[in-house]
Design a protein around this nucleic acid. Sequence first.
DNA 1: TTCCTATATTAGACTTCATCTAAGTCAAGC
DNA 2: GCTTGACTTAGATGAAGTCTAATATAGGAA
Lengths: 138, 138
Amino acid sequence: MSDLLERLRGRGWRMTAQRRVVAEVLDGEHVHLTADEVHSRAVAKLPEISRATVYNTLGELVSLGEVLEVATDKRAKRYDPNAHTPHHHLVCAQCGAIRDVHPTGNPLADLPDSERFGFTVSDVEVTYRGVCPNCAAA
Amino acid sequence: MSDLLERLRGRGWRMTAQRRVVAEVLDGEHVHLTADEVHSRAVAKLPEISRATVYNTLGELVSLGEVLEVATDKRAKRYDPNAHTPHHHLVCAQCGAIRDVHPTGNPLADLPDSERFGFTVSDVEVTYRGVCPNCAAA
DNA sequence: TTCCTATATTAGACTTCATCTAAGTCAAGC
DNA sequence: GCTTGACTTAGATGAAGTCTAATATAGGAA
């Protein structure tokens, strides 16, 4: 966590209380929070922080590659602090819960040139969908 | 296309002018339209059709499995009329253009039981991202 | 330390995409 | 050709996110 703050400082970030709090919230729990959830948790630590700042900070963290945006459904974006170890996602179609997963195989290699249509392909996201044990029980 | 309309009638759809128009728009071009684009094209054929009806109809087509929702970015959802042949998507990170692609390999088989966390996994979406030739040239 | 200024933060208005509501309309079976 | 419940409508509402203009402050300079 202090790692993250160090890295940010090293990148010329002006270290404000607000940014520290947002970084701490993300770094504290390895779950996939929405911007609103990040904001609520940040407010708990720093009551006067505004939504705009949370959005700004999340956007900056994403540009810096410290955090990933995950758009598993059309609801709110979620933010994934686990940006440094490649992984994919398993999403519950009912409750929206997300787990990080590590499939075998290399999907990038599975896309033949003939299927690239001249694109420069740089990235691939794999999203598994299903029903989580909780929702299956209910 | 008349196939589609036939299938829908067979499923008990009340065949209104509006639904026919929406189905025609989707079936006419194999591109990935947003709800708003579907609405514009529908309006061209049937000026009094409302946005709500377009959304309703798209939602029904999705529930019936005739059309797929694609959420490649956080902008508007897109609707993919190509629901009957399995495929994945290649998205331009700059302009948002989408192509259907058919990678080799079977990503569902690439997710070991140990990585399923008790979920019943039913589906997998693979989204390749890159830059399309148009945007690369610009 | 104090000052200065570019950078960051704020509240709240605004935009976009989507859903809801209540009233009116019409397809299809009788 | 009636009737009726499913369908459609305009516009209000909601959710998520972005923008703006005014204010505050981190961190370097003196």
